[in-house]
């Protein structure tokens, strides 16, 4: 009798274990539901990043992918293939998508879309709140005064400044030389006029300056490369 009783109890113990597990899990879920609902948004914001891991290209900065581009033609390749109308190619953050040139002062600088210390090490940076080169509005580009824009203050009113991209050539003429404080946003804000704003820190001996020096340039010509078939037509 005792033996058969023991046998009958075995499933009870197993079922009890399963029941206990399910019951505890249900109680835990119930208890944790309220704090989870409260903190869900914060958790989602804190751990939402799906950006790529740091790579060699990104100088160790997670999510930053720097793309250099040596395919940008820095001279006009023939009038037949250029038109005033065309399509721009929207760059990604960290893309080198233009070359800034001013023959008068011997300036030729790669231009990256976006601004960060890593990009400023490699060239001039275009702030993402400005328009993409070729669109109507204010194109704002800056660089360090001790590296790429060391000669920016040598540009004179009337000098020609050219932006070369893979989709076109955009020519500007220096209209105004400006000096402003870094807190003053007047020159870097979006505008309805077609213009190019170049600026850098005011060169200062020993220490940084809060003063910025820049050049405002007016658009002179906008020439887009046409696709092969379109050009032949």
């Amino acid at each position: 009798m005792a033996k058969s009783k023991q046998k009958n109890h075995a499933p009870v113990f197993i079922l009890t274990a399963v029941f206990m597990l399910v019951l505890s899990a249900a109680v835990s879920a119930g208890v944790l539901m309220i704090p989870y609902e409260r903190f869900r948004t914060y958790l989602h914001i804190a751990f939402m990043n799906q950006m790529p891991a740091p790579s060699e290209q990104s100088n160790g900065v997670t999510g930053l992918v720097i793309t250099e581009n040596d395919q940008i033609p820095t001279e006009q390749t023939g009038q037949g293939t250029l038109s005033e109308e065309g399509n721009i190619i929207r760059p990604s953050f960290g893309d080198q998508y233009a070359v800034l040139s001013c023959e008068k002062i011997g300036l030729s600088v790669p231009v990256y879309w976006g601004s960060s210390p890593e990009l400023l090490e490699r060239g001039a940076c275009q702030t993402t709140s400005s328009v993409v080169i070729g669109e109507t509005g204010n194109v704002v580009i800056d660089a360090h005064v001790n590296t790429f824009f060391s000669d920016l203050n040598q540009i004179q009113v009337g000098d020609e400044v050219v932006l070369y991209t893979e989709y076109g050539i955009f020519t500007y003429q220096a209209k105004e030389l400006v000096t402003f404080e870094n807190t003053e946003k007047k020159y870097v804000l979006p505008s309805v006029e077609d213009k190019l704003t170049l600026y850098t820190c005011q060169a200062q001996v020993l220490g940084t300056s809060t003063t910025r020096v820049g050049v405002i340039c007016d658009m002179v010509s906008r020439k887009f490369y046409q696709a092969g078939e379109e050009a032949q037509r």
Partner: peptide, 27 residues
């Protein structure tokens, strides 16, 4: 039961690498 209830979420967090989605990307 207590061990299972604690280990399951820990295993899930480790297995899915949940914390690697931390939004501050400064290395």
């Amino acid at each position: 039961t207590a061990g299972v209830l604690v280990s399951v979420p820990c295993f899930w967090v480790t297995h899915t690498n949940y914390f690697s989605g931390f939004v501050v990307t400064d290395p």
